[in-house]
């Protein structure tokens, strides 16, 4: 299995690869114990691909994203972003978290603009280009149906609306790779499904690569081109499935037999993973 994968990833030319993990191990060291958080991770994500990593909670999914974002570095092995080894945070990455993490003293618009105040070259021309940036932020808010809420404060809006703004913030500096850490995990089922569609539209409109981490398997099958299943302690990628359904996918499609079959299979894989570790 792992051999096949190695061959498959070698076949892809290096230019078309957005994210690559090479034998990555990560060990958390505490005072007198060490926990292997991730073990032997090998993975390559093609440019423009929508990859979902699914697994039980606590299996190290978030850690995987933090490695790509450059917030932590691996104990062994190498993570590469568009051919470059990750040595720290990079502007080719945009990230959204499980909580919307919007700044409460800023309006929605100001929150969406935040990355442009930090990421170069936008940072140094922020004052000059302010009008253009504001237009862009407004367009983004419009595309996620938040027109008219630009000047509201986050806490005046619902969790779903906040999460949409958080998606806009992750996208405003046009990152090549969008990292999503269970972004819909804290939302109710209806809002979640609504946001799947919003996210799919955003992704279809641009050419970015998405890496989504979730424990919701329907979400994984609905959104992903490729779904990885991750096991717990140490976190390893145990299975890889390609999702062949055409885009744009619809919520009705979730009830098609093919979809349900896929869902059932991945669910079984996770079940096995859980049994092995418990």
């Amino acid at each position: 299995m792992s051999n096949e994968r190695a061959v498959a990833s070698a076949q892809r030319s290096s230019e078309s690869i957005a994210v690559a993990f090479d034998n990555v191990n990560l060990v958390y060291r505490a005072k007198d114990s060490s926990t292997a958080a991730l073990e032997d991770i090998n993975m390559s994500v093609g440019k423009g691909e929508f990859v979902v990593v699914a697994g039980p909670s606590g299996c190290g999914k978030t850690t995987l994203l933090k490695l790509i974002a450059g917030l932590i570095s691996p104990t062994e092995g190498e993570v590469r972003l568009v051919g470059q080894r990750v040595r720290g945070p990079s502007k080719v990455v945009g990230m959204a978290f499980q909580n919307p993490t919007l700044l409460p003293w800023r309006t929605m618009l100001q929150n969406v603009l935040l990355p442009l105040e930090i990421v170069e070259p936008h940072r140094s021309q922020f004052r000059r280009e302010r009008a253009a940036y504001m237009r862009k932020a407004n367009e983004l808010l419009e595309s996620v149906h938040l027109t008219g809420f630009a000047n509201a404060h986050p806490w005046q809006l619902s969790g779903g609306m906040q999460q949409r703004a958080s998606l806009c913030r992750a996208l405003i500096h046009e990152p090549e790779i969008l990292l999503l850490d269970e972004p819909f995990g804290a939302l109710d089922a209806f809002t979640r499904e609504e946001l799947w569609l919003v996210l799919q539209d955003l992704w279809l409109e641009r050419t970015c690569t998405v890496m989504l981490v979730t424990h919701d398997l329907r979400e994984a099958v609905f959104l992903g081109d490729t779904v990885y299943v991750m096991s717990k302690r140490p976190g390893t990628l145990t299975e890889r499935s390609e999702v062949p359904f055409s885009r744009p996918r619809t919520l009705e499609g979730c009830f098609e037999p093919e979809f349900l079959e896929m869902f059932r299979r991945i669910r079984e894989q996770i079940g096995e993973v859980r049994e092995r570790t418990s």
């Binding site: 974002a69 945070p89 502007k91 990455v93 978290f97 935040l114 930090i118």
Partner: peptide, 12 residues
């Protein structure tokens, strides 16, 4: 820490 991560992930 989440708020700090938002900014750090942007390279702040």
């Amino acid at each position: 820490p989440e708020l700090r991560d938002v900014l750090r992930s942007l390279g702040a």
